[in-house]
Computed example of a mutant assay.
Amino acid sequence: MSRTVLITGATGTVSTALIDALDGADVNLRALVHDGSRSPRAGSAEVVVGDLDDPRSLPPAFEGAQDVWLLTPNGPRAPEHNMNAMWAARQAGVERVVRLSVVGAAHDAPNRSGRLHALSDRETERCGMRWTILRPHWFMQNLLNEADDIAATGSFSLNMASARIGMIDVRDIAECAARVLLDDPDRHHGRTYTLTGPRSLTFDEVAGHLSVALGRSVAYLPVSDDAKHKTLLGYGVPAWIVDMLEEYAQAYASGWGDFTTDTVADLLGRPPRDIADFVSDHAAAFTIGST
């Protein structure tokens, strides 16, 4: 009998890619959204409405699911949202939780996101269900946030100094999650997987790959924390998120993200996508008139 997989955060970048990765697999997909008017690109998935902020809304969505993909939005209440989902899963008799954490999650992480995720990781480890935790590195897809500047000016600005980061394509994160969800529930139980790309890169190197893919010069322009802070606030990014991103940037600039693992290759039987693959596949997004 096909297992039912509940996908939380179904309209987000990773969960959307996971729905694509599971499309056509022998599972019953159920996509949780908190706003019924915002339907995900769900394919054959059943769309259900529930809000991790409201535990009373969750039981119908979790009922009958064997597996839960648990993604909580970044924010100061993330552990509460994880707690609400875990309680709903336990009450519904869910067998397995596969949780998306963050790279370097720990009680002494140099950023509040990592410390908050460590709380939820610990809760997951003690949940009484089968569990697997994925801790992905910096997303290559974050570069799409710079697409308009790259298209218009041929440059992008980050407060990362000369940071070198083992960045990963979200599609590889999703395919690793799909692999775990499609395997026997016991195979990955109790495992925490740190997912990275194939090599650490500076943003000057990223700019070089963009230049090749686009056929024109692209430059990386390092800026100060204050400058990036003002820019993001000007775009309407919430202050808590802006502060969190600054903490990550400072950690990366110190060398905190300069590492890779072999986990993606071990799970998928192939190397993770390289930055050259990412920029080639997304070249249109960095071109004027594409957005």
Rank of each mutant, 00 (worst) to 15 (best):
211 S>P: 02
211 S>R: 09
212 V>H: 07
212 V>K: 06
213 A>M: 00
214 L>K: 00
214 L>C: 01
216 R>N: 01
216 R>D: 05
217 S>G: 11
219 A>S: 13
219 A>K: 11
220 Y>A: 10
220 Y>T: 08
220 Y>E: 06
220 Y>I: 02
221 L>Q: 15
221 L>N: 15
221 L>F: 01
222 P>M: 11
222 P>L: 13
224 S>N: 02
224 S>H: 12
226 D>S: 14
227 A>G: 04
227 A>N: 04
228 K>Y: 07
229 H>A: 12
229 H>E: 14
230 K>N: 04
231 T>E: 13
231 T>V: 11
231 T>H: 11
232 L>P: 01
233 L>D: 00
233 L>V: 05
235 Y>S: 15
235 Y>G: 15
235 Y>D: 15
237 V>Y: 00
237 V>R: 04
237 V>H: 10
237 V>E: 06
237 V>G: 02
238 P>V: 09
239 A>Q: 15
240 W>C: 14
241 I>E: 04
241 I>T: 08
242 V>G: 05
242 V>E: 06
243 D>F: 10
245 L>T: 13
246 E>G: 15
246 E>D: 15
247 E>T: 06
248 Y>M: 10
249 A>Q: 14
249 A>M: 13
250 Q>A: 14
250 Q>P: 03
250 Q>I: 12
252 Y>S: 03
252 Y>V: 05
252 Y>D: 04
252 Y>N: 10
253 A>G: 03
254 S>P: 10
255 G>K: 04
257 G>K: 03
257 G>P: 09
257 G>M: 07
258 D>E: 10
258 D>T: 09
258 D>A: 05
259 F>E: 09
261 T>F: 01
261 T>P: 03
262 D>H: 06
263 T>I: 13
264 V>L: 06
264 V>S: 03
264 V>A: 13
266 D>L: 12
267 L>E: 06
267 L>P: 02
268 L>D: 10
268 L>A: 11
269 G>C: 10
270 R>T: 09
270 R>G: 04
270 R>A: 06
270 R>I: 01
271 P>L: 14
271 P>V: 14
271 P>E: 14
274 D>S: 12
275 I>A: 06
275 I>M: 12
276 A>I: 05
277 D>T: 08
280 S>F: 00
280 S>P: 00
280 S>C: 01
280 S>G: 09
281 D>F: 07
282 H>A: 05
